[in-house]
């Protein structure tokens, strides 16, 4: 069971949260100028990292706000949480 720290509410059980995918994917600004490849890249292609992964979570059964988590996708160890727009921690890859 993951223990996830919400930046607003503190540490809570994973069942209070919903996962919202890879973090730091910015929506392209001039969408009318995008090629099909650029759209595919934005919509579908993912890093799917084996190791340290920056991802979005939503505290669905709490404050209902989104935030980012850095987590190792092999050990599932969480190295830190940070608010949307912040740089976040640089975790050790263990």
């Amino acid at each position: 069971m993951l223990l996830i720290e919400c930046p607003w509410c503190g540490e809570r059980d994973e069942s209070e949260f919903s996962y919202a995918g890879e973090a730091h994917i910015a929506r392209p600004l001039e969408t009318e100028k995008l090629s099909d490849e650029e759209w595919a890249n934005y919509l579908f292609l993912r890093k799917n990292i084996k190791g340290l992964h920056r991802e979005q979570w939503n505290h669905a059964a709490g404050c209902r706000r989104y935030f980012n988590v850095e987590r190792n996708t092999v050990s599932y160890k969480i190295s830190g949480s940070y608010k949307i727009g912040e740089q976040g921690p640089v975790g050790d890859d263990t």
Partner: peptide, 11 residues
């Protein structure tokens, strides 16, 4: 969530 750990969560 994504994962390569070959194990599932208790929930």
């Amino acid at each position: 969530y994504t994962g390569y750990g070959q194990r599932g969560s208790f929930s």
